[in-house]
Design a protein around this nucleic acid. Sequence first.
DNA 1: CAAACATTCTAATGAACAATAGAATGTTGG
DNA 2: CCAACATTCTATTGTTCATTAGAATGTTTG
Lengths: 234, 234
Amino acid sequence: MKTEANSAPRRLKDTLYEHFARIGKATSSPKRLEMLDLLCQGEKSVEELALHAQIDCKNASAHLKVLSASRLVTARREGKRVFYSVADDSVCDYWLATRTMAEKRFAEIDRVVKCYFDDRETMVAYDRDVLLGKARRKEIVVLDVRPRSEYDRAHLPHARSVPIDELERCIASLPRNKQIVAYCRGPYCVLSHQASTMLRERGFDVLRLPDGVLEWQNAGLPLATSSSSLSSKE
Amino acid sequence: MKTEANSAPRRLKDTLYEHFARIGKATSSPKRLEMLDLLCQGEKSVEELALHAQIDCKNASAHLKVLSASRLVTARREGKRVFYSVADDSVCDYWLATRTMAEKRFAEIDRVVKCYFDDRETMVAYDRDVLLGKARRKEIVVLDVRPRSEYDRAHLPHARSVPIDELERCIASLPRNKQIVAYCRGPYCVLSHQASTMLRERGFDVLRLPDGVLEWQNAGLPLATSSSSLSSKE
DNA sequence: CAAACATTCTAATGAACAATAGAATGTTGG
DNA sequence: CCAACATTCTATTGTTCATTAGAATGTTTG
């Protein structure tokens, strides 16, 4: 049933590829990937993850156990809840690499995304460093519409945190004489799209940035955290 | 049975993560990874792949069909045989990224490899660019002990092709007054280790380089192909 | 066109896995 | 210590997947 030719190099290879395959097994379920993607934005409880992925807690817990067994995530208990987070930055790099390759290899991903969002004309058209300059000179307002905890962990330089469900309330405080650029978790996240649509209806000059912090960082640009509003790098 | 909350964003996410999970599914089998790894060195027939992975052709063919359905590899027919190759360089990048993360996250990979090879004192200790300099000035002889076809596709600059099964025959042509550096497919390939052991027994001054062409290229260093013995870059 | 060969397709079996529900664990607050 | 809660563990069921063997396809050679 197993390999009969049990030479030493064969045993070595079998062991090694068995280990590598664990990564594949862990990332072979859509729901697990959805949770991993979310975890790349920051620590989350089982409950939050289950809610986002639209599965029940039991099921989410089981999936998280698989991710955890593959060393992709780690758990930390805080009172009643357990918080999961990515085991290390190399996991985010890996996830981004996977996504990038998948986008390149599967034309249908691009197609389905383009078809869903369909807002090429209201997307940021200039380069990331141009955007960074505009933001630094306060010519535009960069809006992070993710939950505050994700903003706190890492956000684009000079970005202001306005979680999507506070947007309605904060709308009066947004400038009407400046361009607004909204971003969220990345090219597949719907939050910035929702924000952009809503603000446009109210007459704001608003563009959507398809980047998230992962994409931004991957482009070699600096991030900021809540403690220091601007990263020391760059 | 499927997701009841069939909102549009949910459908989008389901579609996207379903696609990403295809990559995971394809890379969840050790044998498939072994073949993919080999394909990163160059085009191979089903037969060759089956031989290397020590499975029968039927099984190999089935696995290759899975890799092919996930767009990781492509097939080309030439006469009786079908040759598979990686679909594009991003697949090699992806594979290297996966391997790198797995090495970082699984201490046991390192352990099992160290235990198997156990030749730290006879491994190249200087940097890659130092090696490149020594090779260029002909102070050392760099030996590519992989099959000739893999050498032809890409090899380290100034490397000489001496496939492992021709080594015995070529041994007289190797210099005894220079250091020899042998490399093969990468840190887990046994070929360079075999070559190094064999040459040391014959009294040669030989070191093993754990790099393969993937690792070398990933370090930002140039490669050569058979047509031009030295890459145009750098 | 027939024989030889490499590969793929089809079907069947057994193992691994996702989803689900119920029981158990561990933590907080009274 | 008990009640409420989040999470995990256990057991069950249906599905998917790897492997195997036999039939079929496609290609070359005589």
